[in-house]
Write a protein that binds this DNA or RNA. Structure first.
Length: 451
RNA sequence: GGAGAGGUGUCCGAGCGGUUUAUGGAGCCGGUCUCGAAAACCGGUGCCCGUUUAUGCGGGUCGAGGGUUCGAAUCCCUCCCUCUCCGCCA
């Protein structure tokens, strides 16, 4: 969610930033609703102030707890601008009845009506704000196409083969470690079963990644719910705009997480983090569930894009002025994993049109897959600035006693498991059909080769 | 899933229609006193929104959301959570 104060103060700049994303947004309606609501709010609040004052006088006139001089009370009502008739203050009780009547006629009903309007305007305003994406950082390149992403660095040499390297789905079936047919039997298209060394390879990778992140990169491991409440998804920005990519339980308010980013963001929802606690770094393994409504073909072949996949996620809550340097570290932590596994990769800064809804700046890490002959996105690391923090009310206190401010949130895959399984199978395949295991992974795998 | 008890500020804990404009205590911050500290005493101490910015002023906030009322922490309804017992289960 964008800062309403910012929209109010510099609408042109906000519109311009949004148009860079290719969002053709007019803030006119938002500004109008905001202004109308605030005007009404001021009116209502001043009426309420009068009502509060009047109500206190009713209590005193009734003398439930104290006795007051009647004429002093009458004088106060006159000072509030009300016309008090000469006979109305004949007795305490009579006067109290007069005040009750006055409150009902002049204030109470009007407040009720306006309050309903304010609430309606507020909801309308919020629902519009929830549809606006984050503002891109100035360093983010323009463009909306894949070619507009900027490769910032690359590592490793694509391996050369004395034979035509095969795609992972062929390797997997030959070695009997990926069973596509039975996956479909169980759950339909876009599901598969990992067997034997295939299942073990994925599990080894998960443990390896978590070990490195927790022991060497300073992250705290978390085990999270795979199902969350709807408000968690609103908090990250997945809802209300992108609900068609999510699975949810029709009977109860449970949504399957599309990424660990969702539960991780909401871990500190509605909290004020005390001074000295930032940055907070978490890593978590979860399964991820996505509808990914796309036609079958190259994009979904093999392990590339299933409805369910595993991922190790990295996540940070930081102070606003440190978030961009933390983003660089986050990308570095993901790269470290790929490098230790000896997989050639490139890091690309995403152009403004390719970034996620909630991101202000993103880097993708693509790993080379020689079998399918393409770069596969194995990680996406984003600085979401205060966009998610506003939606989830996550703040921090800069100094003891200081006013709370919104934190910045960052997320990054560290890494997506199926794509890494693909990369290992395809990069480490041998002429005899077996697959070598990267040396760093061998202790986790308990073997040097899959045959 | 069933029955009962309960959710009040950073914490403990009163209040059960109107000087509560949330009592009291602890903690924290500042001050007085002191060579300094402790104690004692005095004052302050949440969060959100609006307005104004030098303070300030107003509104909201007692698990959440509705309702009754001139007025709700207090009464009513719905929901959430915690605890105890029973049931069920990995």
């Amino acid at each position: 969610m964008l800062d309403m104060q910012l929209i109010r103060k510099s609408p042109e700049e906000v519109e311009q930033a949004l148009s860079r994303r290719g969002e053709d947004t007019s803030l006119e309606l938002i500004l109008h609703l905001d202004e109308t609501r605030r005007k009404l709010l001021q009116e209502t609040e001043s009426m309420r102030a009068n009502q509060n004052q009047l109500n206190r006088l009713v209590g005193r006139a009734k003398g439930t707890h104290t006795t007051d001089d009647l004429s002093a009370l009458v004088e106060q009502v006159r000072l509030m601008g009300y016309d008090v008739g000469p006979n109305i203050a004949s007795t305490q009780e009579h006067f109290a009845d007069f005040l009750v009547h006055l409150g009902r006629e002049t204030l109470s009903r009007a407040i009720d009506e306006q309050q309903a309007d304010i609430r309606r305007l507020g909801k309308e305003l919020e629902s519009l704000l929830l549809y606006l994406p984050n503002l891109p950082h100035s360093s983010v390149p323009s463009g909306t196409e894949d070619e507009d992403n900027v490769t910032v660095r690359a590592w490793g040499e694509p391996p050369t083969f004395s034979f035509t390297p095969r795609p992972h789905y062929e390797i997997g079936e030959c070695l009997d470690i990926i069973d596509f047919e039975r996956g479909v039997k169980l759950s339909g298209t876009r599901f598969y079963v990992l067997k034997g060394a295939g299942a073990r390879l994925q599990r080894a990778l998960i443990t390896f990644m978590l070990d490195i992140h927790t022991r060497e990169h300073g992250y705290t491991e978390a085990y999270l719910p795979f199902m969350v409440k709807q408000e968690c998804l609103v908090g990250t920005g997945s809802l209300p705009r992108f609900g068609d990519n999510l699975y949810h339980d029709a009977e109860e308010d449970y949504w399957l997480v599309p990424t660990a980013e969702v539960p991780l963001t909401n871990l500190h929802r509605n909290e004020i983090l005390e001074p000295g606690t930032l940055p907070l770094s978490y890593t978590a393994y979860t399964a991820c569930f996505r509808r990914e409504k796309m036609a079958a073909g190259k994009e979904t072949r093999g392990l590339k894009r299933g409805h369910q996949f595993d991922k190790v996620e990295m996540y940070k809550f930081t102070k606003p002025d440190h978030s961009y340097e933390e983003l660089e570290k986050l990308v570095g932590d993901a790269e470290d994993i790929v490098r230790r596994l000896g997989i050639p990769y490139r890091v690309r800064m995403l152009c403004v049109g390719e970034m996620g809804f909630q991101s202000a700046k993103s880097y993708d890490i693509d790993v080379w897959a020689p079998g399918v002959g393409e770069w596969l996105e194995a990680s996406s690391c984003s600085n979401c600035t205060d966009f998610q923090a506003r939606r989830t009310h996550i703040r921090y206190r800069p100094e003891p006693g200081a006013r709370p401010q919104f934190v910045h949130t960052l997320n990054g895959s560290g890494l997506a498991l199926p794509r890494m399984v693909i990369a290992i199978l395809e990069n480490y395949q041998r002429a005899d059909g077996t697959v070598a295991i990267p040396p760093t992974l061998q202790p986790y795998m308990g073997t040097e080769v899959i045959s």
